[in-house]
Nucleic acid binder design. Structure first.
Length: 513
RNA sequence: GCGCCUUUAGCUCAGUCGGUAGAGCAGCGGACUUUUAAUCCGUUGGUCCCGGGUUCGAUCCCCGGAGGGCGCACCA
């Protein structure tokens, strides 16, 4: 299988030149790909921090260091070379002199291409131009890069290629790497914060006979051993509440959710959700928890500040966040035409929808969602808890004791997008059964997004579930917010793409000679 | 699903009122022992996304298709 034939002529020539350099390196100094270990004892970031005191022209020749990474630039000036090495922590300039390393080693340097992985030993100095630099005495080629890298100045701009070949994106676009490191820090801190309050992290199945807990079309799959059709989960809710019934009183899962629906800047078919349930908490407890969690995450992302800049806006996460009741918000931003009385009437809501020039909705609840989206949501820039949702759009939440039209639920909005959704959980098994029966009827009427009822969940509630507050937070969207990313694909390492020709899993993808 | 935009060298991008195409970077050859988008001289490199149509001639115009982006719709 020769894939050089499948490359463009220019690309093939570039790859051939690199293979020629590899051949020479093998002959002169042994096979780079035979290397197994390199005794790294310093990173780029450590050396830059440690030797910050050096003045231009000064060196620290008594202390030798081994660094390893990818060569990203090479400036050859006859008998000396400056190069840039990128490791996991940053970039470090290297300097080599022919009269010090000798003909043989200098020839190896000349056979290095941009993108090669090397280990280098040397000492730190500050160059005439003021840059901290490793003065290299020894160099080992640890792996050869056989493919040409994108433009050193513009990087890789083609979005499609960036997603399909994220490895290249990560090599040449520094901001990308930083975003994903931030994501990792955010999730790690999320776990630390939650664990510190006595929660247990669990992993529930992603393959289910009935995917419930949300309204969404599931992915279908087949289990050969059981000869069963199964579904990928669309939420972790029902299993986590089973665990609350079982006595794991504080429980959470940060897990992958799959929904077989649209793909756009805020939706990827698989995404990550935090769901957390606390027995004996009410919504006030959850709000307090939510506020402190976000403040903490912002703290980690910004290194101590309580603000995040999103384009032109600055969002402050200093608690307490603003609070406003659902219908108060509608009246405040919409005026008297958006009164509770009118909106809680199906005809009234439909009329409001028409006044806004929006298409008719299939249901009263849907109409309320659209009106809220249009009238209130664009105004919720600073973190705001919207509370006291109408029961008709909250089928899984408990009704308020003193107002049966409303439920104990809030959603948190930041930068006009929904960040969390929380409510006190319905724990009356008869009520739950009745709601499932209603859903089954909707499903029978043709709504494919309504899941089949999970009757075992009702049985679990019949054993008794304590009063419980639950919350869901879309991790990807939260990371978008905290990293100022415009698309969910910018915070998912390998976002779903259509299968496509030569760049992925087709025969010609691996480049063998 | 609908609409708009987009696809030209390995990368970033020009361009052709229809006569099969250019730059910078990268690569290759040369000069250069403190450069940093190194510099200077020379130079290679193209299925202009794919298929069809119109035309003497299509990368360009028309039709169809594919990939991608954005907006709308959908999305507890």
């Amino acid at each position: 299988m020769s894939s050089l034939d499948d490359l463009g002529k220019t690309e093939a020539a570039l790859a051939a030149a690199r293979r020629e350099n590899l051949r020479r390196l093998r002959e002169r100094s042994g096979d780079p790909f035979a290397q197994t270990r390199y005794a790294v004892d310093a990173t780029a970031a450590e050396l830059l921090a440690r030797y910050g005191f050096l003045e231009s022209g000064q060196d620290a020749a008594a202390e030798g260091w081994n660094v390893a990474g990818r060569l990203l630039g090479k400036r050859v000036m006859g008998k000396s070379i400056f190069a840039d090495l990128q490791d996991g922590t940053g970039r470090l300039q290297l300097y080599v002199r022919k009269d010090e390393v000798g003909e043989h080693a200098f020839a190896d340097w000349q056979d290095l291409d941009r993108g090669d992985l090397i280990g280098a030993r040397g000492y730190m100095f500050r160059s005439k131009m003021g840059e901290l630099t490793l003065h290299v005495k020894e160099m080992t080629v640890l792996a050869k890069s056989l493919m040409p890298l994108p433009d050193k100045w513009h990087g890789l701009q083609d979005v499609e290629k960036r997603y399909r070949q994220r490895y290249v994106d990560l090599i040449v676009n520094p901001g990308v790497r930083e975003t994903f490191l931030q994501r990792s820090r955010i999730v790690a801190e999320m776990r630390r914060f939650i664990d510190a309050q006595g929660f247990f992290e669990v992993e529930t199945p992603t393959l289910l006979h009935v995917a419930g807990g949300a309204a969404a079309r599931p992915f279908l799959t087949h289990v050969n051993a059981l000869d069963h059709e199964m579904q990928l989960r669309i939420a972790t809710e029902l299993n986590l509440k089973r665990l609350i019934v079982g006595g794991i009183e504080r429980v959470y899962e940060i897990g992958r959710i799959f929904r077989n629906e649209g793909i756009d800047t805020t939706h990827n078919p698989e995404f990550t959700m935090l769901e957390l349930y606390a027995a004996y908490w009410d919504l006030r407890d959850m709000m307090d928890f939510n506020e402190r969690l976000l403040a903490r995450l912002v703290d980690v992302v910004t290194g101590g500040a309580r603000e995040v800049r999103i384009g032109e806006r600055t969002i402050s996460f200093a608690p307490p966040f603003a609070r406003i009741a659902y219908f108060d918000a509608l009246q405040q931003y919409g005026g008297d035409a958006y009164s509770r009385e009118r909106l809680l009437d199906a005809g009234g809501a439909a009329a409001v929808l028409a006044e806004l020039g929006l298409p008719p909705s299939p249901s009263h609840g849907h109409a309320l969602d659209k009106i809220f989206e249009r009238i209130v949501q664009p105004n919720l820039v600073q973190p705001t808890f919207v509370t006291d949702y109408p029961a008709i759009i909250s089928p899984l939440a408990k009704r308020k004791r003193d107002d049966r039209a409303l439920v104990d639920r809030y959603e948190l909005f930041c930068d006009t997008i929904e960040i969390s959704n929380a409510f006190t959980e319905l724990n009356d098994p008869d009520d739950q059964r009745a709601r499932f029966e209603a859903q089954a009827a909707q499903r029978a009427a043709g709504d494919e997004e309504i899941p089949e009822p999970d009757w075992d969940f009702v049985r679990a509630l019949e054993y008794g579930m304590p009063p419980t507050a639950g919350i869901g937070i879309g991790v990807d969207r939260l990371v978008m917010l905290l990293t100022n990313s415009a698309s969910i694909r910018d915070v998912i390492l390998f976002p779903m793409q259509r299968q496509h020709g030569s760049s992925e899993n087709s025969r010609d993808a691996p480049l063998s000679p």
